[in-house]
Amino acid sequence: MMKNTKYNLIADSHKSEETKIKNAIIAFFTGGLIGLIGEGMIELFCLNFSMSRTDAGTLMIVVYIFIASLSTALGFFDKLVSICRCGLLIPITGFAHSMTSSSLDYKKEGPIYGIGSNMFKLAGSVIIYGVLAAWFFGLIRYLLGGSL
């Protein structure tokens, strides 16, 4: 055990420098930009196609998913992430990206054993805990006297 402590002490003095704060600031602005463009899209759809805000929101998400999936398939989404950091991975674009990239990896194994069974490799956790969290917060809201 002594050996490990001494080793860790020496190893800690040779840690790589990570630019966490810089990454967070970049992600804050790029993520915010995605939100801003999304809001712009909603306004655009509401005004031009006389949609309800809910429908326009859904359409905005569909547009983002399409763009993210297409750019993943064309191979430049990962390069955008290396510039924009997590600002592109946290919104719905990151979710679409994780599904498309998993599917691309396994396309040679065929549609059933490849794409079908591996598509949710990364996104599966997001879906299952997303649904669970939605159910949980819905329950709290109901118990606090809100409507269903």
């Binding site: 398939a73 997590c86 991975l89 990206h97 994780s98 990239s101 990896d105 490799k121 990364l122």
Partner: peptide, 17 residues
């Protein structure tokens, strides 16, 4: 990458180490 880490096209930022 495919076997040990994330899908190839997945662009999660990686630490300098």
């Amino acid at each position: 990458e495919k076997q040990f880490r994330n899908p190839v096209e997945y662009g999660a930022p990686r630490p300098n180490s």
